[in-house]
Design a protein around this nucleic acid. Sequence first.
DNA 1: ACAGGTTTGTCAATTGTTTGTCAATGATTA
DNA 2: TAATCATTGACAAACAATTGACAAACCTGT
Lengths: 312, 312
Amino acid sequence: MKMPAQYPIRAASQLTGLPVDTLRAWERRYQAVNPSRAGRGRLYSEADIRRLLLLRRAVDGGHAIGQVASLSDGALEELHLAGTTAQKERPGADRGVSLDLEPILTAIQAFDYSATNEELGRLALLLTPRELVHQAVLPLMRLAGENWEKGLFQIAHEHLLSACVRNLFGGVVRRQATRNGRRGILITTPSGEQHEFGILAAAMIAVAHQFQVAYLGPNLPVNQILFAAQNLAPRAVVLGIMAMNATPAVRADVELLGRELPTGVELWIGGSGGRKVVDLTASDKTIVLEDLAGFEQNLERLKASGVREDAR
Amino acid sequence: MKMPAQYPIRAASQLTGLPVDTLRAWERRYQAVNPSRAGRGRLYSEADIRRLLLLRRAVDGGHAIGQVASLSDGALEELHLAGTTAQKERPGADRGVSLDLEPILTAIQAFDYSATNEELGRLALLLTPRELVHQAVLPLMRLAGENWEKGLFQIAHEHLLSACVRNLFGGVVRRQATRNGRRGILITTPSGEQHEFGILAAAMIAVAHQFQVAYLGPNLPVNQILFAAQNLAPRAVVLGIMAMNATPAVRADVELLGRELPTGVELWIGGSGGRKVVDLTASDKTIVLEDLAGFEQNLERLKASGVREDAR
DNA sequence: ACAGGTTTGTCAATTGTTTGTCAATGATTA
DNA sequence: TAATCATTGACAAACAATTGACAAACCTGT
């Protein structure tokens, strides 16, 4: 039995970034939330925290608390989606900037490490790992890239964002990697491929799908990938390969893996160089992941096909 | 067959950083723990210590001891905690925690990702970031290296450990980096230096010393380091440089930084290549960090010299 | 564009509760 | 006898709730 966690007002304040006075004011004036009142002091539930974060997001987006306080959680979520399109009215606003991304973007722009970290953390609390990747981090990286092209951002801005995201993702993967499902996925990149972001995002998606993830980082020699796969006996080995690194050597590595991996272990290749290193004429168990959606489809397929053997 | 370690109240106080009185008060008033009372005085088990640390973490995170004291260990771990866990320095810490690295080593040997992760997490809970680096991670990396030389470990084993450590460190730095102290330290490596472990360890040490860390990851171009330093206005910029990467280009980078960094911003160079890239004849504000101990000495110096301006 | 009214974040004063710490005392051991 | 620990009682600081108030920001109708 799990007691739903309860948070006193101080903890709620830290988690939401709202001052305690504001928490009380919102409750007193608009009944924005109604935390339980066991004994002395308010106790906010997880749902309350989430709702407060939604409210904050709305308020940060320019809505008046008096107007949105009575909305349902669902309406609050839609409101932010609607806000992204309605944003166009505002002149000079970037297109498609989700409302909740703006605080982060301004934090990055101001080169405020703490603020970037905190806001990212709040988003992580509000969203599932999957949503975090799709709705927050990927758009953020895209926006950062655009801003760089426009001359608004420096490389350092991107490093700031990347470093914060890297730490955040690492923490999430770490927490979820223990005691998740029993289906395993091994994630890494072959020798020569240093880029980590793609496989980290993949790891986030995988944990969101309840897979037990073994994340080994980038740049692992083939024979070692093989060794790891033999020991971990995952359902699939996922490799990320960028186009610029899709060398003949890597292609040979992938072929080797396709041949030598234990039966029952699939080989999935993602990243912009995925297609380049897989020999499509050889119809083996190697699968090219065109994008994250394709990755998720394969995860779902695995989940479905694995039900029987899991139920045992 | 070894007896589970038992700690008298004084030792428990040292290990947890909680005053003796508090330990007794928590037990008397909330039955937060029930140490065995074999004859003379309380004897806390490892599990008790762990639980006390969890409780402390929760309390630091804004929870009331009266509310959380009755929660199970599992529930305590589940609690989301916002970033402000300003881990208080424990007086006389560092002392003989019977650190058993064996479980982790066997977990790595067995290539058990979850177990490695879990054991590392347990240590992280038990130790301050500083102790974690000195007493757990560095020894582990050394042991892994030795085992590799002996042929017991593969490269994959080291990757497994590195990946887990990377995620763990990232999470710790992330949590502590949010408005801890007001003293700032910028940590990164210059272009061409990809190795991240050293600067990550440095970041861990720095947060343990209550510094506000801006960790930007490796491989940042000089002009961007300069840009970041101008924006963040840290007390020091810390660069990690390995001997193999101590190229003339990097040397020029370091010189440039030594010249151009804003006044009041020190430049610290660490890593095995530190000495090679600093021109010792030019007596500027650049400091070579021989090892982590030297790093900590400089941190202490900064802390001491900054007292006045902090007190304002 | 401007005056008047409303919204809203923040602060202050007061009251009651929780919690860390301390002092006094007694018991046991080296 | 000195030292360590347990117990108990006590107390001040920190914390939370409530109410009231205020100023800045924000409408809104002219």
